[in-house]
C-alpha cells in the first residue's frame, strides 16, 4: 500500500488574543495513490483549515500544535519556505470553492497558467494547450481575462492550473459549491475523467454527503475538528450517529434526555458529538479515540467501535 498523503496526530489551534482555541484535533488519516478520498462536514467543522494546513497556507493566526503531514513520505511541516514553494503546485495542488475570487482579475488566463507551470523540459505552450484541452477549453481562452468567462469555465481554468504539473494529489475544496447543478455535474465528470487519465489522488472536500457517496472511494466524516468516521460507501454503511443524521436516517429531534449536558470544564475532552448525539450514554463522557476497524476504515464512537471489534 502506497500513501500519497498521510496525516499523523495533527492538531491545529487558532490564536485569539492570548488564548489558543483548538480547531483541528487528533487528525489521523491517509490518502492512497490514485484514490478519491472525500471529506464531508458542515461549514465550520474545520475542512478548509485542514486543506490549508496540508498546503501550509494557514493564516498567521493559526498554529499547528502537533502532528505530521507526510506528502510522499516527506513531512512538509519541517521543510523550509523555499522548498514548500517548489512543492506547492507541483506535487500537491488545490482547487478552491469560488473560482471567480481565486483568479487575479488583472491577469489573463494565459498568465495564470504560465505561472502555475513549474520548471519543465517540455514545450510550455504545447503543455498549456494540452492541459486546456484536457479540461475542455480552447487554447484561445488564454488571451481572456477571468471576468469575461463563466463560473464553470473559471473552475476549469483552476483545474487546468492544478493539473498542469501532473501532481500526485489534488485537493478540491468544495469545488462545486458556487456553481449551478448542471455545471456541478460537468465539473464532477471532468474530475473523474482526469483521474482515469492521469491517476492523481484527489482529496475532495464537500458538505454534500450524497455527492460524496456517489463519487468517493472512501469517505471521512468530520465533526467539530475531529474525524469521526471513515468508511467505503460501496462496501459498508456508516455507523456513527452523526453520519446517520447527515444521511437523514435518524430523526434529529430525538435526543436521549436522560443524560443532560453538564457544563463541566472537561467537556472539551468528551466525545465531540456528545451534546447532540441521539445515542449518547454516560460512558461517552470521556475522551474517545479513533478506532480503526481495518487498515482503511474506522470510527470514533465507543458503542459502534466496540460492536465492530466484537
Amino acid at each position: 500500500m502506497e500513501y500519497v498523503l498521510k496525516i499523523v496526530n495533527l492538531a491545529v489551534s487558532r490564536r485569539e488574543r492570548t488564548q489558543l482555541i483548538p480547531v483541528l484535533n487528533d487528525i489521523n488519516f491517509f490518502v492512497e495513490k490514485g484514490e478519491l478520498f472525500c471529506l464531508v462536514g458542515e461549514s465550520g467543522s474545520g475542512k478548509t483549515t485542514l486543506a490549508l494546513s496540508i498546503m501550509r497556507l494557514l493564516p498567521k493566526s493559526f498554529v499547528v500544535t502537533s502532528g505530521e503531514i507526510l506528502l510522499n513520505g516527506q513531512n512538509i511541516l519541517n521543510v523550509n519556505e523555499q522548498s514548500i514553494r517548489s512543492i506547492r503546485g507541483k506535487d500537491i495542488s488545490i482547487i478552491f470553492q469560488d473560482p471567480g475570487a481565486y483568479l487575479d482579475p488583472l491577469f489573463t488566463v494565459g498568465v495564470h497558467l504560465q505561472e502555475a507551470l513549474h520548471g519543465t523540459t517540455e514545450d510550455k505552450n504545447q503543455l498549456i494547450t494540452k492541459t486546456l484541452k484536457d479540461v475542455g477549453l480552447e487554447p484561445e481562452i488564454q488571451l481572456v481575462y477571468p471576468h469575461q468567462i463563466s463560473g464553470g469555465q473559471q473552475q476549469r481554468v483552476m483545474i487546468a492550473m492544478a493539473l498542469i504539473n501532473n501532481p500526485s494529489i489534488i485537493i478540491a475544496d468544495e469545488p462545486t459549491t458556487a456553481l449551478d447543478v448542471l455545471t456541478t455535474r460537468q465539473i464532477i465528470n471532468l474530475l473523474s475523467k482526469i483521474r482515469e487519465k492521469y491517476h492523481p489522488a484527489i482529496f475532495f472536500i464537500t458538505h454534500d454527503l450524497e455527492l460524496a457517496m456517489s463519487i468517493g472511494i472512501r469517505i471521512g466524516i468530520m465533526y467539530k475538528g475531529h474525524i469521526v468516521e471513515i468508511f467505503r460507501p460501496d462496501r459498508e454503511k456508516p455507523l456513527h450517529p452523526y453520519s446517520g443524521i447527515l444521511l437523514g436516517n435518524i430523526d434529529k429531534k430525538y435526543f436521549n434526555e436522560k443524560i443532560p449536558v453538564s457544563s463541566q470544564t472537561d467537556i472539551n475532552d468528551w466525545c465531540p458529538f456528545f451534546e447532540k448525539c441521539p445515542e449518547r450514554e454516560q460512558k461517552c463522557q470521556k475522551k474517545i479515540p479513533f478506532i480503526w476497524r481495518d487498515s482503511l476504515t474506522g470510527i470514533r464512537c465507543i458503542k459502534h467501535g466496540r460492536n465492530h471489534q466484537m
Binding site: R85, I94, Y102, L103, A116
Partner: peptide, 14 residues
C-alpha cells in the same frame, strides 16, 4: 484576498 492565497498555492515566490 482569495486570489493571493491561490497565488501562494501555485507555488509562486514571495
Amino acid at each position: 484576498n482569495p486570489y493571493i492565497l491561490a497565488a501562494w498555492a501555485r507555488g509562486l515566490p514571495a
